[in-house]
């Protein structure tokens, strides 16, 4: 386990090195929140309006304040490195070392997340705290606890998801540009912009089966207090289920891809 702690630390140091880049990207996170705050206020607060989309005004504002930060936190970033490894043969250096490739990236991913997690979680704490006072809605400690648990699972789930997508590099050499598109689409599908539940029954049902919502919308919904205890527990169960499934798919793709990589001569 010691070597993975080392990898974790390396990731952490790397992230600290680039902290200013991260701070700037935080800004691009705050602006959509402002826009959406005004949008929802305009929709909900006009005289005589009764909005029936499953969210109260307070829940929607809490969602808006939290979802952007959560999606920023769980987002990948390592898929580019994996693509580089496979494309330029940098993979070989992992193959000759006694490390497990997927685990290597997992711990490095977690390490890199630490500084952003500290900043983003404090941002979430401040915004929801202030909003809670302003909107007079208290967030129960149980919900906060569940939120944190599901957030950790969401982080792992998104890692597995992106790892599977990154495995695609074995079959198509230059997909790095596609990753940009994929990650934007994933932010939308996971509810990082608006909750998927807003877009009709069909979208809702489908999105509750697919893994994407469980990376952003699900943890955020827990915090808004919208979900019942049962829904939370079953949601966490689905998260775990998807993680197991994706780890399985990921290692399968890894094995198949590696065979291809080696037969192609590295």
């Amino acid at each position: 386990m010691n070597k993975y702690r080392c990898i974790f630390q390396m990731g952490l140091e790397y992230a600290l090195e680039y902290r200013f880049d991260f701070l700037f990207s935080m800004i691009s996170c705050i602006f959509p929140i402002i826009i959406q705050f005004f949008l929802w206020s305009a929709i909900y607060l006009q005289p005589g309006a009764s909005i029936d989309n499953g969210y109260t005004y307070e829940q929607m504002i809490l969602y808006t304040l939290t979802a952007g930060f959560v999606s920023k936190l769980v987002i990948g970033g390592f898929e580019y490195e994996i693509n580089e490894d496979i494309k330029n043969g940098g993979l070989n250096k992992y193959l000759i070392r006694p490390v497990h490739y997927m685990r290597y990236y997992f711990f490095s991913f977690l390490g890199k997340k630490v500084p952003s997690a500290v900043i983003l979680l404090s941002a979430v704490a401040i915004t929801t705290g202030v909003a809670g006072i302003a909107l007079k809605t208290a967030i129960s400690p149980v919900h906060i606890l569940f939120f944190l648990v599901s957030l950790v699972l969401a982080l792992i789930l998104n890692f597995c998801l992106m790892f599977c997508i990154a495995m695609y590099s074995f079959w198509v050499t230059d997909v790095s540009k596609l990753f940009g598109t994929i990650s934007i689409v994933l932010v939308v599908l996971s509810g990082g912009v608006f909750p998927m539940d807003l877009f009709g029954n069909v979208v809702r049902t489908v999105s509750h089966i697919l893994p994407f919502c469980y990376t952003t919308q699900f943890p955020t919904d827990i915090l808004t207090g919208r979900l019942s205890q049962n829904a939370i527990v079953s949601g966490i169960a689905i998260q775990l289920l998807w993680i197991v499934l994706l780890v399985f798919i990921g290692s399968l793709l890894w094995k198949k891809g590696l065979k291809r990589f080696i037969s192609a001569g590295g």
Binding site: K177, L178, I184, F194
Partner: peptide, 19 residues
């Protein structure tokens, strides 16, 4: 890929239309 990335961002913008 420039076109596809832009299509991704377009999806975000269109989600506002949908809302």
């Amino acid at each position: 890929s420039g076109v596809t990335v832009e299509c991704g961002y377009l999806l975000v913008k269109l989600s506002y239309v949908a809302v």
